[in-house]
Every structure is written in structure tokens, then in C-alpha cells.
Amino acid sequence: PQEEYKKRAKKALKKGDEDTAREALKRAGLSPDQAEEFIRRFL
């Protein structure tokens, strides 16, 4: 589910792994723009 992928993305970002985070967010159904926004907000 979407929440699970978002959790995964946050874990990846904590490790500084933005590529894995983007992949997880893409799987969560976010557009690339939404994924970038999510990452920017998190960092």
C-alpha cells in the first residue's frame, strides 16, 4: 500500500539514499514532481 512505500522512502532518506526514496515514491503512485516535493519536505 501507499503508506508502506512512503515509510520506506522516509527510511531511505534518513540514510541519505534519495534514489531508493524516489523509487519507493514512484511505486506509491506519486508523480516525479510529487516525489521531489515529498523529498524536499523531508530533508
Rank of each mutant, 00 (worst) to 15 (best):
A21H: 01
E3P: 06
P32Y: 10
F38Y: 07
P1H: 13
K11N: 13
F38I: 05
D19Q: 13
E23I: 09
A21Y: 02
A35H: 01
A12V: 03
A21R: 00
E4L: 12
A12R: 03
E23D: 10
E18L: 15
P1D: 14
K15R: 14
F38A: 03
P1S: 14
F42I: 08
K11M: 13
P1I: 14
K10G: 06
R41Q: 14
E3T: 08
K7T: 10
A28I: 04
E36I: 05
R40C: 08
A21W: 02
F38T: 02
R8E: 15
K14T: 10
R8A: 15
A24S: 07
G16V: 02
G16E: 03
K11W: 10
D19Y: 10
E3A: 11
A21M: 02
L43K: 13
S31Y: 04
Y5P: 04
D17P: 00
D17T: 02
K10C: 08
L25E: 00
A12K: 02
S31F: 04
F42A: 08
G29I: 00
T20H: 06
A24Q: 13
R8C: 09
S31I: 03
R27C: 09
K14P: 01
Q34V: 06
E3F: 08
P32E: 12
L30V: 04
P32T: 11
E18S: 10
R40F: 09
E18D: 07
P1L: 15
D33V: 11
E37G: 05
K15M: 14
L13E: 00
G29T: 01
T20E: 13
P32Q: 11
D17L: 06
E3S: 09
L25G: 00
F38K: 01
A28E: 02
A28W: 04
Y5M: 09
D17Y: 05
E3K: 10
K15I: 13
T20Y: 07
K7S: 09
A35T: 11
E37S: 07
A24L: 15
G29R: 02
E4A: 12
K14Q: 14
K11Y: 10
Q2E: 13
Q34C: 06
R27K: 14
K26S: 10
P1N: 14
E23Y: 05
E3R: 10
K14E: 15
A28R: 01
K11S: 13
K14S: 13
K26P: 00
R41A: 14
E36Y: 05
K10T: 12
E36M: 06
G29V: 00
R41D: 12
K6M: 15
L25D: 00
Y5D: 06
P32K: 09
K26M: 12
K26F: 11
K26H: 11
F42L: 06
E4Q: 09
G29W: 02
K10E: 15
R40S: 08
L30N: 01
T20F: 07
F38N: 00
F38W: 09
A24K: 04
Q34W: 04
A12F: 07
D19S: 11
F42H: 10
G29E: 03
P32G: 08
D33E: 14
E36V: 05
A9L: 03
L43N: 10
E18M: 15
A9T: 01
R22N: 03
Q2R: 11
A28F: 04
K14N: 08
L25Q: 00
E37R: 07
A12T: 02
G29N: 04
A21T: 02
A35S: 07
K11A: 15
K7G: 05
E3L: 08
Y5H: 08
R40D: 06
T20R: 07
G16D: 03
A21C: 05
Y5F: 13
R27F: 11
E3M: 08
K26I: 11
A9M: 02
E3V: 08
A9K: 02
R22I: 05
K7R: 12
D19A: 14
A9W: 02
S31Q: 07
R22E: 01
E23F: 04
A9R: 01
L25H: 00
I39W: 01
K14V: 12
A21V: 03
K6R: 10
Q34L: 06
R8Y: 12
K11R: 14
E4I: 11
R40V: 07
L25V: 01
E4M: 12
I39P: 00
D17E: 06
R27S: 12
R40K: 10
K6T: 11
I39S: 01
R8M: 15
R22F: 05
K14D: 09
D33S: 12
R22H: 05
K11V: 13
R40N: 08
E23W: 09
Y5T: 03
E18T: 14
A35G: 03
E4S: 09
F38L: 04
L30C: 06
K14H: 10
Q34K: 06
K11I: 14
F42K: 02
K15T: 11
L25Y: 02
G29C: 04
Y5S: 05
R22A: 04
P32V: 11
T20V: 08
D19M: 13
G29L: 04
F42T: 06
D19I: 12
G16M: 04
L43G: 09
A9N: 01
L30Y: 11
D17K: 05
L13M: 04
Q34F: 05
A28K: 01
R41P: 03
A9Q: 01
R22L: 06
S31P: 06
E4T: 08
S31R: 07
L25K: 00
G29P: 00
R41T: 12
Q2D: 10
S31K: 06
E18K: 13
I39Q: 00
D19H: 13
E18F: 15
G29H: 04
A24E: 15
R27G: 08
K26V: 09
K15Y: 10
E36H: 05
T20I: 07
Y5A: 11
L30T: 01
A21P: 00
D33N: 08
Y5Q: 07
G16T: 02
P32L: 11
D33C: 06
A35V: 14
Q34N: 05
K14A: 14
R22K: 07
E37V: 06
K10Q: 13
S31T: 14
R40E: 07
